[in-house]
Structure formats: C-alpha cells, structure tokens
Nucleic acid binder design. Sequence first.
DNA 1: TGTTAACCGAGACGGTACGTCGCGTCTTTCT
DNA 2: AGAAAGACGCGACGTACCGTCTCGGTTAACA
Lengths: 233, 233, 233, 233
Amino acid sequence: MPEAPESPAPGPGTRRPGGRTARTRAAVRDAVLAGLVEHGYPGLTVEYVAEHSGVHKTTLYRRWGSLEGLLADALDLAGEDNWTPPDTGSLEGDLRALAREVVASFTDPVTSVSGSAIIAAAFQSRQAADALSAYYEERFKRCEPLVQRAVERGELPAAREGGIDAGALSRAACAPLFFRLFITREPVDERTADQAAAAAVAAAHAGVFTPARDEERVASASGAKETGTHTQP
Amino acid sequence: MPEAPESPAPGPGTRRPGGRTARTRAAVRDAVLAGLVEHGYPGLTVEYVAEHSGVHKTTLYRRWGSLEGLLADALDLAGEDNWTPPDTGSLEGDLRALAREVVASFTDPVTSVSGSAIIAAAFQSRQAADALSAYYEERFKRCEPLVQRAVERGELPAAREGGIDAGALSRAACAPLFFRLFITREPVDERTADQAAAAAVAAAHAGVFTPARDEERVASASGAKETGTHTQP
Amino acid sequence: MPEAPESPAPGPGTRRPGGRTARTRAAVRDAVLAGLVEHGYPGLTVEYVAEHSGVHKTTLYRRWGSLEGLLADALDLAGEDNWTPPDTGSLEGDLRALAREVVASFTDPVTSVSGSAIIAAAFQSRQAADALSAYYEERFKRCEPLVQRAVERGELPAAREGGIDAGALSRAACAPLFFRLFITREPVDERTADQAAAAAVAAAHAGVFTPARDEERVASASGAKETGTHTQP
Amino acid sequence: MPEAPESPAPGPGTRRPGGRTARTRAAVRDAVLAGLVEHGYPGLTVEYVAEHSGVHKTTLYRRWGSLEGLLADALDLAGEDNWTPPDTGSLEGDLRALAREVVASFTDPVTSVSGSAIIAAAFQSRQAADALSAYYEERFKRCEPLVQRAVERGELPAAREGGIDAGALSRAACAPLFFRLFITREPVDERTADQAAAAAVAAAHAGVFTPARDEERVASASGAKETGTHTQP
DNA sequence: TGTTAACCGAGACGGTACGTCGCGTCTTTCT
DNA sequence: AGAAAGACGCGACGTACCGTCTCGGTTAACA
C-alpha cells in the first residue's frame, strides 16, 4: 500500500513510505491486534508489539510515539473495510439486523476482545479516543442509506422540514446495547437488540429525530435544575 | 458505617472492625477517590493511595488485594448515598431531568473525572466491573417509582399484562447519552438529553417496554443472520 | 561482614545491614571487579553487574545510585587489605621494591586490568575519583614507617627542622612509573622502577623533601611566567 | 594544511583531499574539541560532532571510523604547534618553568578540560592512546635542547659515556605533577612544581639519568620479590 | 565536455544500555 | 498476631546514542 494519504504520525515514516516502511507498518498493526486479543488493552505492551512484529521498540516509539499511536493506527486499518448496513426491506428489520450485528460482534469471544479493548483504550488515550470517534462517525455515516430507503418506502414521514436525522436514528438503535455492554455490564442478547430497534423505530415515528419538530419539543422543556448526581459514582 | 457487611477481601481486617480498622478504611477510600480525580484511573497507583491515606502499601495489599479491590470498595461507598429520581409531575419531565442529570454530571469537569475513571476501571478489572454493575442496578431500581407515578397518572397504559418494564424505560433514556459520552465520544448537551428522554417516552407509548406485548413483537422478528461486524473495530 | 561503618550510599541498604543486605553487597562488589577485568571500565555496564551478582538492576540503582557508586564501593573493599611497605634494610632497597611492586601490578595482565580501570573511572566520575584519592592517601600513609626506618638508620639526615616529608618521597618514587604507564604510555620495566627509586633517594639526600629547607629553595625561584602550554594537547 | 599526509582512515577522504574535504576535516576537529570542552570525553558523542560540524554522522563514520578516530585526528592537530621549552639561563630555572607550565595548563579551567579529556580518552581507545603517546614523545623531544644547554653551561657533568638521558630528566620533572593531577588527584600548585623540578635536578646531579652509570646502579639492585600489590586497587 | 566514480547529505532502522516507575512479595521490627 | 517499615525481584517504560544501511544528489577527476 504505497499510498497512505492519512498521516498517522507526522514524524518519521511518512516521508519515504516505500518498501520497508510499508511492510513494517502492516506488521506492526497485526501485532497490535494480536496483542489486544491475547492480553487485552491493559496487558498490551510496546515490547510485545516489538517482539511480535519484528520491529524494534525504538522504531515503534520513533514512528508511533507511544502505545496510543499504535492503537490509533490499528484502528485506522480496522476502519478501512467495506461494511454496508443491512438491507432487509423494512426499517425495523434493518435496525434489528444492525443491532443484532452489534450484539453478535461483542458476544463472540474472538471478535469481542479487540473491539472492547479499543473502547477501553479510548479511556486512556486521547489519540485512541479520536480514532474511535472517527471510526463510529464513519460507520454511522454509512447507515444513512438505510434511513433513506425507509423514507423512500414511505415508512417514515417525508422529511419536509429538514429531514430526519439518520445518524440519530441509527445511534438510537445501538446505544442501549453499548450501554448495557460497557456501562452497566448487563447481559445482552438478540431480544435486547430487537427491543432497541423497536424503540428507535417508535421514536422515529413519533418524530423525535426530525430536527425541525425538535425545536418545538425542546421549547416545552421544563428545564429542571438538579444538583444531585444520578448515574455517576 | 463502622462495620462493612459486604466483604471486599475475606482475609484480614474483617475480624476486628473496630477503631483503627474503620478509620483506615475510610482514609483509604478517600485517597482512592482523590487519586482518581487527580490522575484518572490509569494514573492511579497503589503507592499514591498508600501515601495519601497514611496506610502502608503492604497493608493495602493484605486487605484489598490489589487496586481492583480498592476501587470496588470505593465504589461501594459511592453507591451509599440517598439519591432519588426527579419528580417533575410528568413522565417526560422526569426522564428529561434524569437525562440532564447524567449530562451534567459527566460534563462538569470536577465530577466527571472520578465517574469516567470508574467506568474505565471496569474495563480492566473484573471486580470494578462487578461493582459498577451493582451500582447501576441499584440506581435504576430507584427509578422504578418514577415509572410507577406515570402509570398512576395515566400517562402510561395500566400494566395489566405484566406491567411496563421500568428498568428498560429508564435505561432507554440514559443509554444514548452514555453511548455518545463514552463510545462514540461525541459532544453531548441538554438537547441530546431531551431527545433521549423523548425517544424513551415515545417507545414506551408504543409499548416497546411492555413485556407481554414484547413477546408478540419478538415473534415477528425475521431473525437476520449476519456475519459482518458493524460497530466493532 | 556485619560491620560496615563507612556509608557508601546514604539511602537504602544502610539502615538494616543485616543478613541479605550484606550478602548482596559482597556479591555486587565481586561482580563489579569481574566486569572490570572482563570488559574494562568503558565496557562495564550496570546490567552486567546485575546479571553476574544476581542483584536486580533496580536495586543497584537504589543502593549505589549509579556505576560510579558501584565502583567507589568496590574500591573501598580493595583498600581494606593489610598491605605494608617492603622492608629490605635500606632506603633505596625499600623504594626499589616499592617501585617494582607498582610495575609488577600494572604489568601483570590479570591484575592490571581492574587497577587501570579504576584509574580510568576516576576521569569520569567524581565519586570514583574521590575513592581513588582516598585509596592512595591511605597507601602512602602506610609508607611512612619506611621513611622512618631510614631516618633511624641514619640514611637520611635527622629531621631537625620539621622532618622529611615521607609522603612526598614515596610519591616521588612512584610518580614516574604512573606517568609513563598512564600518561605518556611508554613501556615500563624494572629498570625504570629502579631509576625512579634512585632519583627519589637522590632528591631526598639533596634535601628536596625537607620542608624547612624547601622554603629556602622556593625563595630562589625566578617565577617564570609562561603562557604557552607544554604538556597539554 | 590542505593535504593530510598521515592517514587517519585509509578509505574515503584521502583520495580527493581538495576543497570541501579539507574544510570538512577542520570543522570536524573544531567540533571535537568543542565537544570535549563542553561535555568532557565521556559526554562526547558522534552525534554532537555531526551537529556542530555540519558534517553528517554517516560521513563521520565513513572517514574516521569512530569516536576514537575523531579524537586521534584532533590530537594530531593539537600537536602541530611550535612550542619550545623555556630558556631561563639555568637548568633548574628551565625545569621549574616547564613544571609550572604543566601546572598552569591543567589548573586553568578552560585549557584543562580538553587536555584531561584526551588523557581520559586514552584509557578507552587504543587510537587515542597512541596519539597521546606520540604527542608526549614529540614534546619531550623538543626538550632536549634544554638539557643540552645545561651541559654546555657546565651545570651537568659532560656526558662522556653516552651522555645524559635528556628525556628521562624532563620526564622526571613533570611526572610528579601528572601523578598528583590524574592518579592520586591531590591539589598541585607552583610549590609542587618547584619541588618536582628540584628533585629532577638533584637526581640528575647524582647521575641517575646518566645511562652508563645506570648500569652500575642496577647491578646493585637486590631484586626484591613481592607478592602484594601496592598501588593498585 | 561529458562521464563516471567517489563522496556526501538525509533519513530510517536494529540494537544495547540507560535510569525510572510501579507492582507485588518478603523480611525485619515494632507494639 | 497484626501492622509499619523497608528492601527487593521484576517487568516495562521511554530515551540516548550507537553503528549500519539505503537512497538520492553533488562534485571532482578523468576520458
């Protein structure tokens, strides 16, 4: 992959990306993912990556700066697939499928490890957080056609006044799953996925994700002022 | 709270919980929280706790086993407040207030630190994860009266066939916020909170959280089988 | 060796010198000397000492601070022998023997290594320099009886006016050897040693090392002021 | 000195010594000396020389092989001055002046640095040692006229049987100073210098440096056999 | 006057050792 | 007997400098 327009590290390794440099980069990314699967994020060490990639520790620091950089780069790689949202013929079907995909990927013992490892990493590394943020931004952008199709099918009211917020709708279908998986750490299954999808559809039908109408709704907010902390230890 | 019925570490420190032991435990918990605020979870060290609590490192290991134990114990403490859900007179108002509390507590630079630190800790420590899970379980249990009031007010259909799932409803109102805060790491404000509350209410009205009817809904699920990974790097 | 009143490092390892601490110290000193013999000073590494002494690198730094400290400590050990100056029955004989000892010890391939290593170390470490200085101070102090005997034998004029400077005399006998060994790096043999001894004796007879007369001699110095540098690259 | 007849490195840089090559070499030598003054020998790095000379690191290795070569080359430069020994009109005066020069050059904080740095370097580099050796050889050769004048003045007995060893005499006057400066690391001042000069003169008068008589003296050596090590740690 | 070989600048890299941090264990000493 | 105090083994950190290599670009000697 001689082309690599995105700049993971501004320092070395970006000026002469031919030959060895590129091979090195790929090896490193593989090692990072392998390390995540093997030990999880907290157990991932630079030295492990060095050993398993055949790239010397010093070089890793030179080019990626730190573990954070390594992870961010690995995430870039992960984002470069050609995933497309499901297309089942109905909005609820699509969202269900989407939600079930989430559940499946984080339930499967193999794939879940590296995924949650990166989410964990985002808590400790600005760089990883940014990479993760970009990753999901991209994912949900790819979901827009899903909503578009629903509008075309007439399942959602034609968006006269600004259109429906496709991103918000997709997020709504996934949010409860991630919440349960990584915050409250409750068990999730397909039932949970289906419920999340159903809730999102219901909210969409109620116009919650229609920006223009949102204005009206917000206007009626009673602006409760609380000082207590609810969901925070 | 002189005695500690729940046993964080079964070994020493549980036999003679009077006097010094109790004082020690409190000091340790304070130090843990202070450490979290100061350095975040990844920067929290046993040695820091030892210094700031006046309890020797060796003792910390004897009684709490490791950092995980220290955190879990501190979480127990955090859960022992007398928080109650908001009561604004309407279901949507209550949920909005609830959601805004979440946003406020994780937006405030002071309170957000220790909160997200513990969530981060849960990724690296089984013990912390369990403690966090219990914490949220308790919180959402306390939200049941909120839903109950709505039913009594007639805002929600009387729960003839098993009643509404209060926990699911409350979670639905909070999930999108946590999702954006800690997974996709998008900016969150009161508008987001209001939208989340509205979506939850809409879903509730549509009967999504009514178990009995849930059966029916699930029955219509087309059981899409996907192998791709959607939301996972 | 439970006693060890001299404090090589003020930090750890000095408070509780019982048992392990003492054993550790001896092992480390052996490893240091072995390292010097094997690689010379520039090739001596802390990691080598760690491996060959069985004491962990971290501990070495904790107790000795750095390579310098390790060397200084090893020097202390070396100084703790019971060397006494030769006693051949005549001043010149004694000085010859002394000078030949020097030549022998730095000519022998085995013993010379660690010796010159420490001299080399003194160039790079204040601590090693101090230790070396103390070592020679002690050695030459032990030579005083040698001169004393010569006075008693009548070989040297009775020291009426302040006595002869025993240290200066002994140093005079050794200086040319060290000079040739380590500065000009010329070959040195027993002939050189004998010449140095003879020169020292001649100077002593001429009263060069008799402080009181020194005053007179110095008075006649013409105080040449030169700006050029003679012996310095 | 455009061309460089002596070959520090037989490889590159010797075939086309015109223009840039010569300029480069001078710049490098300056940088080496500057580095010595700034950080001392142990702190002198190839990278420093590269930066401060404007010559790339790779080139330094190509032409000088290593730090040692750089130093040896710099020493060659230092030896190429037109120093001559003092001429005060008397042997002792000359030697005093000589000795005081030594003291002065190694006492002055500016000039002493690079001088002792090179002596230190000789401990770690064969090449530097050879260069240093040659340097002093040359210096003491230049001192021969000094002794010659004394003979002509009648201060020293006419050298009938092989003449006096001028080199040994000059060395004798300097040795105690270097010994104290770099071995025992005692303070030295002009008094020390004068004493050294006086001792050398006395020894010379006693015929110590007259080779022919040396034979006789050595014959009387009693060949003491010692096993202890005197001056060596 | 071109060619061509020697040389140089630039940058990345594998590698050794550094000196430090924090962990978790152990021993010793106090009370 | 439990706790305080300290030393230690241990693994990993992030850095400095080493010496090597590859890649272009320049330059000087020679055809």
